[in-house]
């Protein structure tokens, strides 16, 4: 059993999408696709589940809201109540309208930064990381499909390459993995 990666290089995202559909209908697993911009409709074809990052953002936002409520209550109501401009300082609810701006800002702050940090973390993006796109042209104008032979034990390597060629790949490269 060989351990190879096949790269199908395409010049157009729609041709790649059709090729991916053809390969999937034959039961070939596609490991990844590298493209210069997002290809709409590709994710369900190659089996990528919708990301849950927005759910995470919601919970980060909820944390921000709760934190702001706790902070305003603790600092201005519980720890050191002060009479500022005659505004009620003995009860959080009565003083709440003045706390809305800070609560809102902290909600947005936590949701946005929490989400971006999670995004960088799950995508493994950080300064100094080595890029792993197989070909530098894939951030310019080439669309590259990656197929691993280990994931496609039932399929003959030559068959996969044939389908790629028939569906419009302009180049087919392969690499031996150790």
């Amino acid at each position: 059993m060989s351990n190879k990666v096949i790269y199908g290089v395409f010049e157009d995202e729609e041709i790649l999408l059709n090729s991916a559909k053809a390969l999937r209908s034959k039961g070939v697993r596609i490991a990844d696709v590298f493209s210069p911009f997002p290809i709409h409709g590709l994710d369900p074809v190659i089996g990528i589940k919708p990301t849950r990052l927005s759910n995470a953002a919601f919970f980060y936002g909820l944390f921000g809201t709760s934190f702001a409520v706790w902070m305003t209550w603790y600092m201005l109501i519980s720890d050191w109540p002060m009479n500022i401009g005659g505004k009620p300082n003995f009860n959080w609810m009565l003083n709440m309208p003045a706390f809305i701006p800070v609560t809102f800002e902290l909600t947005v702050f936590c949701a946005a930064h929490g989400m971006v940090l999670s995004y960088l973390l799950v995508n493994k993006l950080y300064p100094g990381r080595k890029p792993h796109n197989p070909d530098p042209r894939s951030t310019d104008d080439k669309f590259i499909m990656e197929i691993r032979t280990t994931e496609n034990g039932k399929h003959n390597e030559a068959d996969i390459m044939n389908v790629l060629r028939e569906t419009g790949a302009v180049e087919i490269n392969h690499k031996e993995l150790k």
């Binding site: 990844d32 696709v33 590298f34 190659i46 080595k130 792993h132």
Partner: peptide
């Protein structure tokens, strides 16, 4: 940040 443009990253 070592961006590679994989399908998951784009999604």
């Amino acid at each position: 940040f070592g961006w590679s443009g994989s399908a998951k990253q784009w999604s």
